[in-house]
Design a binder for these strands. Structure first.
Lengths: 246, 246
DNA sequence: GTGATTCTGTTCGCCAACACACATAAGCCA
DNA sequence: TGGCTTATGTGTGTTGGCGAACAGAATCAC
């Protein structure tokens, strides 16, 4: 994390791009624009027009709903297993939710027009996008149920695990305040839950950094939602040989 | 004319079908199968294979997530404004959620194979299905946020309103127990909230029947989620104006 | 190094929703 | 009509999360 890696990584670090046949990839690659994203960057604003779609490689993005009173909740996360901008393909030119950068990192963007053209060919790109859409729907649905039925501690475990799956290391750079705004709960709630997890030896943290120590333990403390989503992503997006999911 | 109660209504009472160009409709109509659905019928079981998709006309369907402990929550409702079976088009052959009949009524079903063929033509049918998918995503997202932030009473108001929108009358045939299982809360919670609404003169009910008296009042007691979803559905699915962007 | 800023820990009262238990009432039908 | 089933009402105690307020600790900027 502390490395000064400024050289662009490969677009193929994004699983969606990597799953495309070379023919499609050859068409798209010249138009993929390398980009670095900073924590907190707002990629899409609710109701805004979408000019680009994003394929994260090392960054993690987060889809948020913003309520009238300003409260927010994450409804889905997007890492290198996915992409941001599905709603363009669905025919709404705008996105209903805000997209922000949850973890700084790299990625690629593509003009929506080019994505649309490729999608409209009706080939493997389209089928892949649609499968990803289905996976996204499952993720959002599970979030809805999770919000209804599970405790903050369970949800924190779930969130840590799915974030971890998108990171190379086992350390997140994140304040509790930020985590709280992701889950749509109070900061104190996260302090308490994280304190419990630390006392149980599952994680350790210091100002703005959370390190996962006992991943299996986290899974035991998490609600079922983590595994449900993970399995569905695997089922829908493990394209042939690739078994590395999420 | 046969029995008034059992005579099939027109497929065009379903807004999705009604929005299709006649050319497409002519291809599909011969294969639409009229069907009546009883309260509680399970149309899709979680993880099951999908043989048909459904276009409700007077019935209302409900998508449920079922948790490991058996608890359920509705994640979206489907009336004559929509259809059931989107996940087929997305490439998962199975559905992740259970679909049940929430209000008995009529509708049409279509073999998935025929729907797929039409979808794969890439014409107006595909574009319509994709827009509906987007609307569904918005509905589910809003449910996630609503579950996090709003009270049972607000959610009940929201649910009553959106159910009402799918009904010809202002009376729902529904026990409180059933409503509770829709919202994923306790039956007592609904008793209490419904009692409040009745005392406020917004609804009246008796054993298994809920009548909405003051619709505007319900809207005032509801959370913002009702209107957000309604507006998005209008924006995405307003018939005729396929070109209506923004 | 020092002071300012930001993050984390903790407390208190409060309320919505929960689980459980049981009382009453409405409708069904024999 | 009366008895049975099912739906609804109510009460008690518990809990998880909220809001607000504040104290201490870690890091940053100068």
């Amino acid at each position: 994390m502390g490395n000064f890696k400024t050289a662009p990584n490969s677009p193929l670090q994004n699983h969606i791009l990597a799953a495309l046949p070379t023919e499609v990839l050859d068409r798209l690659t010249p138009h993929l624009i390398f980009t670095k994203m900073q924590l907190g960057d707002v990629l899409y604003e609710s109701g805004g027009l979408l000019q680009h779609v994003y394929f994260p490689t090392t960054s993690i993005l987060s889809l948020h709903y913003v309520m009238e009173n300003g409260a927010t909740s994450e409804i889905a996360g997007v890492g290198n297993e996915g992409m941001l901008g599905i709603s363009i393909l669905m025919g709404g030119n705008t996105t209903p939710s805000r997209a922000i950068v949850q973890t700084a990192g790299q990625g690629y963007l593509l003009k929506t027009k080019l994505l649309m053209e490729e999608f409209n060919r009706g080939g493997p790109m389209m089928r892949l996008m649609l499968r990803y859409t289905q996976a996204l729907i499952i993720q959002i649905s599970q979030t809805a149920v999770c919000n209804r039925h599970h405790t903050v501690e369970q949800q924190l475990c779930r969130w840590l695990l799915s974030t971890l799956d998108r990171l190379p290391s086992n350390e997140l750079t994140m304040t509790q305040e930020l985590v709280a705004s992701m889950l749509g709960v109070r900061r104190e709630g996260i302090t308490e839950a994280a304190g419990d997890l630390q006392r149980s030896g599952l994680i350790s943290y210091r100002r703005g950094h959370i390190t996962v120590i006992d991943r299996a333990g986290l899974e035991r403390h998490s609600c079922e939602c983590y595994n449900v989503v993970k399995n569905e992503f695997g089922r829908l997006l493990s394209n042939g040989q690739q078994h590395k999911v999420l």
